[in-house]
Simulated assay, not measured.
Amino acid sequence: MKNARITGLGHYVPERIVTNDELSTLMDTSDEWIVERTGIKERRFIDPQKDTLANMAAKATKMALERANLQNEDIEFIIFATITPDYFFPGNGVLLQRELGLESIGALDVRNACSGFIYGLSIAEQYIKAGTYKTILVVGGEIQSTALDITDRGRSTAVIFGDGVGATVVRATDEKRGVLSTHLHADGRFAEELYVKDPGSSRPREERQPEQILDTTGFKVHMNGNAVFKHAVVRFHEVINEALAANHYKKEDIDLLVPHQANLRISKYLQEKLQLPDDKVYNNIMRYGNTTAASIPIAMSEAWEEKKIKDNDLICLAAFGSGFTWASALIKW
């Protein structure tokens, strides 16, 4: 049986940097307030006149393919994880396929929010182990900025999210390395603790047509921050230990933990719980905010650039988010 190995990493973030100080001119907040609660100093927002999720994904893919020494035509299947597609439908997989000039290859969209990239990686792993494909593009990308309520009413979420895309090339290999295992979980009882209600389909017709809606709050992100934090710190720890146990490793064997960049306080709590030194945990939330499905592949791409991911390292990925969903992956690089 073939193993699934990540051979190329790439990322793209919009040019526009939005600092906490800039947000403090638009709502009742401050750099100190945001940093204390989230660890975020700045984030990237798209330019709606030129940026789309699809064209940003194509730029991230170009970087990943170059690093893998491959061409667009080598891609056999696309998996695109996002909850902020360019269109309500079709999904962004086919839009990226078009951007890359590819025809007829399959494209699958994953809507598991912050856990979406690991869910997508798990799907790629299974396709490769089954012999269905040899080269799969797995992308995580989001455009959050255009949906944020940048007012006092929305500040609890508006200061958190940012835009960006990360891409990975996953290939079949005979080597004894690659994705060792993935672990996926969900608990729909808490779906409404972090969600965007609209445009949902289970509505009377008049409520699905925005021109007839006076109250548009259903289109904004709703998050019960306390509930998310309480569950996240438990599930992160559980799912990392699950991955380690499944492969007969201990926490001391981790060379680099790349957690979903939800909140620096969560990452620091997790680091303390696992007793990992600073050089074994990668965080970039201070620069980009929470980019949901994009956060792990962006962080991996940057960590690789900084030579913090090396051959034969044991890399652990972990995520928790809307759904609630949570997931982990253990990789022998």
Rank of each mutant, 00 (worst) to 15 (best):
I6P: 01
T216N: 09
T292C: 04
A113K: 01
S24R: 07
E207P: 03
A318C: 09
L276E: 05
A299W: 03
L148T: 10
P204V: 10
N92W: 02
E211G: 12
E242L: 09
L108R: 06
K280L: 09
R98E: 15
K332I: 03
K268D: 15
S201C: 13
I17G: 01
A329L: 06
N226C: 04
A58C: 09
W304N: 05
G8N: 09
A191Q: 11
D51N: 13
N241M: 14
A319S: 15
S104E: 11
I46A: 01
L70E: 00
G289Q: 03
N20L: 08
R155H: 07
A303D: 06
G225W: 04
D311A: 15
K251P: 05
E175N: 14
F45E: 01
S322I: 04
D109N: 15
T52L: 11
T157R: 02
V159L: 01
R98I: 12
E22Q: 13
T135K: 14
T217K: 08
L96K: 00
V169R: 00
M300R: 03
A4I: 04
E73W: 05
L314I: 14
Q261M: 07
E272I: 07
K280P: 05
I79R: 01
V13Q: 01
Q271W: 10
R265K: 14
S24E: 07
T52F: 08
Y87Q: 13
V139A: 07
I213K: 14
D311Y: 11
W326P: 02
F77C: 14
P297H: 04
R171Q: 05
E193D: 15
Q209I: 14
T38E: 08
M27D: 08
I254D: 00
L180N: 03
H11S: 15
L148R: 07
L70F: 01
K251D: 11
A329Y: 03
R111D: 04
A4M: 07
G39W: 07
L108Y: 13
Y249Q: 04
E306Q: 15
R208H: 09
F236Q: 03
K129V: 06
R203P: 00
E103H: 13
F161K: 00
I315D: 00
L214I: 13
R67Y: 10
I143Q: 04
